[in-house]
């Protein structure tokens, strides 16, 4: 058909399938009518004009083209769906958010799983570097840097942490052995004594993922003597628990503290702790122990408690008169 059968206007034919609706501007340019007019005439040869008219009317009333801007910016929030209301709706909402959380967690832990899978390899690597470094240390070519690096590696990992599953009924004994091996590196550096709290943190950090409970640590430490391991669990009168090396005696601690007091003058627990890079709680216990031996004495004043060399116990008053 070339001309309209009603108005005889020119009709151009085009292939509907090739119309590019995505690119509206292009389309309208290509199929621009030759005569510009303000109206469109539609012919309904097989009926259906009424149905079309209804649809057109409602579309005109809704003014969908004006809304486009708003809806694209603000997401429909008050979109009420009867299927989402009531108790069912609440449950469905909860399920929905659970599902979302689960996905987020899964994504987050994917990396951690990967890390755990590689733990043993990482620890092996650390071990081999450590061995290399200790060889270097033995040959006397080490520097402060390498020894510092070495300590990091020591803290890094335990190759095959003993677990309840792997050891079964001998769990605490095995744990004690592994702990003793682990602490061997530290006790020397920490002047022969460490508080159970510090050990708990260090040991669990080294274990990485197979963490142990404080209860397990306590039980393992109680086994030291029974297993002939070179360290002991010790409870101070205040209730503070420590692990000390059997090679270190109270005498050595007393000597160390006395030496500090004699060279640096009277000290508070905090000053001594920072001198020895030890925890204040531990130093406090040691000071009390040395005081009980009668080697030092304390001065309580508004400035706090300060420990002095015990001049009282050996003082003799030489009077002239």
């Amino acid at each position: 058909m070339i001309k309209c059968e009603m108005c005889e206007a020119d009709l151009r034919s085009f292939d509907v399938n090739n119309l590019d609706f995505e690119n509206d501007a292009e389309t309208s340019k290509n199929f621009k009518p030759t005569v510009k007019s303000d109206f469109v005439r539609l012919a309904f040869r097989d009926g259906g004009s009424n149905a079309f008219y209804e649809k057109l009317k409602s579309a005109m009333a809704a003014k969908e083209w004006e809304k486009v801007h708003e809806t694209s910016n603000i997401k429909v929030t008050s979109d009420f769906d009867p299927g989402l209301g009531g108790l069912v709706g609440i449950i469905r909402n909860a399920e929905q958010s659970q599902k979302e959380q689960k996905e987020t967690l899964n994504q987050a832990f994917k990396d951690l799983d990967g890390l755990m899978a590689n733990t043993s390899e990482m620890v092996k690597l650390a071990e081999s570097i450590r061995n290399k470094l200790s060889k270097e240390l033995d040959s006397g070519t080490s520097t402060d840097e390498t020894s510092a690096f070495r300590t990091y590696l020591i803290e890094l990992g335990i190759p095959n942490p003993v677990t309840k599953d792997s050891a079964g009924s001998t769990y605490h004994k095995e744990l004690a052995r592994q702990l003793a091996e682990f602490l061997d590196n530290f006790l020397e550096k920490e002047k022969g004594m460490m508080s159970l709290t510090d050990i708990y943190c260090l040991f669990n950090r080294a274990r990485g993922v197979a963490l142990i409970s404080p209860e397990d640590l306590y039980k393992a430490c109680s086994q030291f003597e029974h297993l002939n391991l070179p360290m002991r669990l010790r409870k101070f009168s205040s209730g503070l628990m420590v692990v000390e090396s059997v090679h270190h005696s109270d005498e050595q601690i007393a000597q160390r503290i006395l030496h500090h007091i004699k060279t640096k003058g009277p000290l508070t627990a905090i000053e001594l702790a920072s001198l020895d890079k030890m925890s204040v709680v531990l130093v406090n216990e040691q000071l009390q122990m040395v005081e009980e031996k009668g080697l030092i004495c304390k001065d309580e004043s508004v400035e706090g408690v300060r420990f002095y060399d015990n001049l009282i116990i050996n003082f003799r008053w030489e009077r002239n008169n």
């Binding site: 009277p266 304390k298 004043s301 001049l311 009282i312």
Partner: peptide, 8 residues
């Protein structure tokens, strides 16, 4: 001697 004033 300061500690002399604290009851040991």
């Amino acid at each position: 001697f300061p500690p002399f004033y604290t009851l040991q």
